[in-house]
Every structure is written in structure tokens, then in C-alpha cells.
Amino acid sequence: MPLPRLIPCLDVARGRVVKGVSFVNLRDVGDPVELAQHYSDGGADELVFLDIMATPDDESTLLHVVERVADVLEIPFTVGGGIRSVADASAIIEAGADRVSLNSAALATPELITEIARRFGSQAVVVAIDAGKGVVHTHGGRVATDIATVPWAVEAAARGAGEILLTSIARDGQRTGFDLVLTRAVRDAVDIPVIASGGAGSAQHVADALRVTDAALVASIVHENPAGLPGLRREIEALGVTLRPLKERV
């Protein structure tokens, strides 16, 4: 297996990185390109950008951000939020993103997973699942569906998804550790990689997740201390999880 990945996630609204508590009180924390560069320099293995407003007005703003990020970043990045069609996905990928993340649109139109995978390859399609009490949720985790989490992950993989981004709603933002039971259940059921998300509060939490699955998404733990990413990597490695070796800039 490739080395486990540490993936900072940036929430974007109207072309800026924002941070909020439960999607309210959004606070501007910076320019996406500067933050992307900063995390890349700090040893991020990959980045995820989620457009949390994802209104049609924001579309060209988001594409512009994707282009600017692609021009500075030399690590892979995924863009999600508001992608509802093959045309939406194509625009994001052609602007320079490596992968798109589908959430509600994949639930509403599962064929979309297959269509994007056929055009750009499975490695370009991430299906994001917001899970709580065994079922998939929509609307940023606020609305429960009657779709069971594990069977949906299996279906997404069968339809061509190249990776599952699995968020535990209960753990999200709590910094009490990832839901390892949920993560293991989904990972055992599919034969594509799974990114654990929701709950990272310490290096120990991340190390525990990376022993169970392929990658871990981190947000507040690095946003509150962006300078701390290299330190976080060192702590994770000291706990016995081998990350990719970083090269000094020459």
C-alpha cells in the first residue's frame, strides 16, 4: 500500500477560506492560495477544498481559486461542494484540480459517479459521505436519509468512485478522535481507499486513524496552528506511523 496521507481540509466561501462553528459565524481566515502554499510547505500530502456556500453565483469565483491553486501547488488537491453535473466536474478538473468530491449530487444521481469516472478515471472521483447513526446525511450533516452508510459506500465504489471521504457527523469539530469503528466498517466493505474525517484533535488520534485506513482529513487541529503541521507530522511519526519523506527545498 502507498504511505498513509495527511490531508488538511480548507472550507471556502466566496473565494476565501473561512472557518465557522456549525456552519454559522463564518470567519475569514485567509486567501486559499496562500494557505494552500503554506500547508504544502508544511508537508501536507494532499489538500481538500470544500466550497461550503456552493451557490451558482460562486461558480466562477471557485474556478478562479482552483486555477490559482493549481498554478502554485505541486501536490494533488480535491475540490468539492456544489458539483452537480459532468460539466461542473469537467470545469473544476480542467481548471487544475486532480479530483472532485461528490456528496448530495451522488445520492440524487448515482449515475454521475460513473459518468465522471468514465471521462476522467476513477482516481478523479471522490464520494463524500456524511455519516451519523448508521445512515447517510445531507445538507452539511443536518438532514438524515434512510440510506445505510456501508451499503452506500459499496454502491459508490461499484459505480466507479475512486475513494470514499467518510465524515463522522458526531465527531466532526469535536476533536475527540476519529470514529474508528465506522471507518473500519466502511474500509472493510470496499476495495478503494478511504479517508477518515471528523474528530482529529491530536497526533495520537491521527496516528490511530492511519493504522486503520489510508488517509486522514484534518481541519481545526492545523487551522488553529498552521505552523504546527510539520510538528504534527513529527509527532505522528514518533508514534510509529511512517509518512512520506519530505525533501528540503534546494
Binding site: P2, Q123, D191
Partner: peptide, 8 residues
């Protein structure tokens, strides 16, 4: 074991 093979 997992395809696509993704990562470093």
C-alpha cells in the same frame, strides 16, 4: 489490495 492505487 485497493484500486485505484492512490498516494505517495
Amino acid at each position: 489490495p485497493r484500486v485505484p492505487r492512490l498516494g505517495w
